[in-house]
Amino acid sequence: MTRRARFLTLAPLAVLCLTLLGLASADGAWLGRVPAADHQRTNPYQGQADAIAAGRNIFEEHCARCHGENAEGKKKRPPLKSQRVQQEASAGDLHWLLYNGNMKKGMPPWAKLPDPQLWQLVSYLKSLHE
C-alpha cells in the first residue's frame, strides 16, 4: 500500500473515531468535571415546599425560555427531567453546573444568582421527577 493510499484509508477512520468520541462525551461530560467536594455538597433546602416554589419562580424567570416551561427541553437545550439530572447528578453536581455553567455548550454560569437561590433552583429541578 502506497503512502497516499494508506492516508486515504486511515484519515476517514480517524475522523470517524474522533466524531464518535466527541458525540460520546458531548452530553453529560460536565458530570466528570465536578470536583468531589462539590459532588458531595447537600442541599440545605432539600424537600422544603417553600424552596421548591421559590425555585419554580426562578426557573420561570431565568431558565424556561431555553429549557421549556416544563423543563421538557427545546431544540439543542436538554430536558431537565432526564435520568441524568434526576438520578445520575447529585444536588451538589447541579449546584456546581448552575454556578459554573457549561459555556462551551451554551450554558452560561449563573453565579450572579446568590447561593440560596441556586439551591432553591436545585430543589425545584430535583422535584420534577415526582
Partner: peptide, 17 residues
C-alpha cells in the same frame, strides 16, 4: 448585594430579593 439572598416562594414584584 441583593437585599435578600433567598427568593420568595410567592411571585412578588417588590420582594427584597
Amino acid at each position: 448585594r441583593p437585599l435578600k439572598l433567598a427568593a420568595s416562594a410567592h411571585k412578588c414584584a417588590f420582594c427584597a430579593d
